[in-house]
Simulated assay, not measured.
Amino acid sequence: MTTDDTWQGFPAQEQHPPGLTGEMTPEPDHGEQSYVGHGRLNGLLAMITGGDSGIGRAVAIAYAREGADVVIVHLPEEQPDAEATLSWIERAGRRGFSVVADLTSAQACRNAISAAVERLGGLDVLVNNAGFHYTRNDRGTIDGLEPELVDRVIQTNLTATLWLTQAALPHLGPGASIINTSSIQAYDPSGNMVDYAGTKAAINSITANLAQQLGPRGIRVNAVAPGPIWTPLQPATRSAEEVSRFGSNSPLGRAGQPAEVAPAYVYLASPLEASYVSGSIIGVTGGLPTF
């Protein structure tokens, strides 16, 4: 895990979306060698969208080491990353399954939930983590927006959160939790991420709204707002120049690693430690303000 104050940034690099871990230099730290579980999630059944790589992989590893069985949802192109993540879940002695799905339609979201529940035998934790943006060639600015990319951003980040949650509700009982992935962009939007930042601000509102709606059912709803985190999405959707200075604007002076975000998701999923936490958004931003 990189914590060196002399950190000088990443080598300039680009991939095609959605991006793969093995093509990154350096590869991210997902906690493979560092995360130690303490039984916080023993016996829970969790589904993590975008669970093949990046933050999703780190959360999957942490959940498994905390005692949960895990389904990860990913795109077909992400199969190599998914297999690696499943291997870490199984090494933790837990059951791991994958569901291949493009979550840009309501039916795909419903199908993913059904498949996850069938494989796990139930559902206790839903992590809405899959996300997409594209800033290369100024396509995240208002002048550069393209309908196809904007639709993908909105459907992946925002509407999938709604449809997955709706489909999961019949399977979630008292004590269950839903955890959404927001972003520092919801609070401090970059000028070239207008569509992405808008979806993340909306996720904050949805999180607060659902916490009120589902509280009477005993279901907690929270979110994590990461700052700049080194995941395949970055070289896959940013220019090489952007990648080389990614994270340098944080007060800690560097990008974060997925392993540094995962503990927030563990805390929010814990039925003991976070039993009275709902409607909250935890920032993991390297010092960038979330207010």
Rank of each mutant, 00 (worst) to 15 (best):
M1S: 12
A12Q: 14
Q13E: 14
Q15N: 11
Q15H: 11
P17R: 11
P18R: 02
G19L: 06
T21N: 07
E23Y: 09
P26T: 09
E27C: 09
P28T: 10
S34E: 12
Y35P: 01
R40P: 00
M47H: 03
G51D: 04
G54N: 02
A58H: 06
V59D: 04
A60M: 07
Y63G: 00
Y63P: 00
A68S: 15
D81N: 15
W88E: 13
A92G: 15
R94W: 06
R94L: 08
F97D: 03
S98H: 11
D102M: 07
D102F: 10
T104W: 03
A106G: 10
A108M: 07
A116G: 14
V117F: 03
G122S: 13
N129S: 13
F132V: 09
H133V: 07
V150P: 05
T156P: 04
L158Q: 09
L158T: 05
L164G: 03
P174L: 00
G175L: 06
A176V: 07
A176M: 04
S177Q: 05
I178L: 01
I179L: 13
S182W: 05
N192Y: 07
V194S: 14
D195N: 10
T199C: 10
A201E: 06
L214S: 05
G215E: 11
P216V: 11
A225G: 12
P228T: 09
I229R: 01
I229P: 00
W230F: 12
A236T: 14
S239R: 10
E241Y: 10
R245C: 09
G247L: 09
L252V: 15
G253Q: 14
A269S: 15
A269C: 07
G279Q: 09
G279R: 08
G286Q: 03
G286M: 04
